[in-house]
Design a binder for these strands. Structure first.
Lengths: 210, 210
DNA sequence: TACCCTACCAAGCAATTGCTTGGTTGGTTC
DNA sequence: GAACCAACCAAGCAATTGCTTGGTAGGGTA
């Protein structure tokens, strides 16, 4: 994100610094729209100097995405193996996702915008695997929810999964850390809408106009 | 979308045919990732020949997006001026959006993926205007809903708007026309989740099992 | 026959792109 | 003070990119 133009040479880890700069540009302009000269300019060096740290522009996104996904799925796994009830697990998973948006905005944005395209290349095949893994997580949570009576019995699990997956991540397009709403607030509001809906509850039988 | 390699020269409108081919490529690969040679190849002509029909690659997206948006907002306006009640209007707006995903998948996808980047250029300033216009539509519908008692009184309108706007369009990432679910089915399911939530209602009757 | 028009080809140019190569700098270690 | 090293520079190359130019095929029209 923050792209300080020039930094004292005695930085603890220049490599990760450059990665952060690149991530910020990839997230806001897109991978293909960002040139190695853009990254180098933002870092205050020449484009060729980047190749002292990285093999290629591709390997930069690779490292950004794989590192982030590794961490994220570690958190999901921790939720799955916990002994909370189904609804709590679902809420925790949503909260963890919003936490990721808060703390790794660039990475989430890059994944959202570029995964579909990058996934086509062999090098990024792991993106599709992670996607399948993510599906496992959500489907499991939803299945448990329905089975234990926490969620409606008539849910279309597959469709609900896609709804959930999508709605959880799109907030990255507008959420800014340090704004009026903390990520925990956004998560709670999203959960309220998701779980209870936006309609005024009726105690009588709902007239479902079909 | 459909990219027939070679077509008889006596087509009613070659221009719109080329636009459709370009839209398909822009949607699946991204604007910057699609070269004029890609488009020409898919159309069975040479890249230079595209410039008989269009000024530039940019003007192709421009025409694709502006045409689509003009049509879409015409539909939204029709809903706003109708004399349906608030909840019906909201449902109609969601249905119209899913219809757009069904009938103009490429255009919606391009708008979703490229608007943020393209909007930065003066030529595409209208994208930001349309975005503001879209906000007007949804906020109006939500406000009316709360005012008439159709929606919860404690809704955070601004947040709900973003939730709605986002969830309505992301389905373009996975929805395929001609699949198991018609766009009307998807719209109804999304509306059910959105209005009533996915949690099992605490107490009473609830007969919705179509 | 002469003319025009739409749709295209053939060739290539200028700019941009990712990346390479050989060299320099300043600090640390023994 | 010699050797080493991470970080960077300076220059440029090959490929790709959007786009231009001058020309051509073929159908319609008068």
């Amino acid at each position: 994100m923050s792209a300080e133009p020039v930094q004292p040479t005695t930085t603890p880890n220049r490599r990760s610094e450059l990665l952060a700069i690149a991530a910020g540009l990839f997230a806001s302009k897109g991978f293909k729209n960002t040139t190695v000269r853009d990254i180098a300019d933002a870092a205050g060096i020449l484009s060729g100097s980047l190749y002292h740290h990285f093999d290629s522009k591709e390997s930069m996104v690779d490292e950004i995405l794989s590192t982030f996904q590794h961490e994220l799925f570690g958190r999901y796994d921790a939720i799955l193996v916990s002994d909370d009830d189904a609804r709590t697990k679902l809420e925790r998973a949503v909260e963890v996702s919003f936490e990721a948006i808060d703390q790794h905005r660039d990475e989430v944005a890059i994944f959202q915008n570029e995964a579909a395209y990058l996934g086509g290349f062999e090098r990024f095949a792991y993106l599709a695997e992670r996607n399948a893994q993510s599906r496992e997580v959500w489907i499991t949570l939803l299945d448990d929810g329905v089975r234990t009576g926490a969620l409606r019995a008539d849910l279309d699990i597959e469709l609900t999964y896609r709804f959930l997956r999508d709605t959880v991540w799109v907030a990255v397009a507008w959420y800014r850390p340090g704004g009026k709403l903390a990520h925990t607030d956004v998560a709670r509001q999203y959960l309220t809408i998701l779980l209870d809906g936006i309609a005024q509850p009726r105690h009588t039988t709902q007239g479902d106009k079909s």
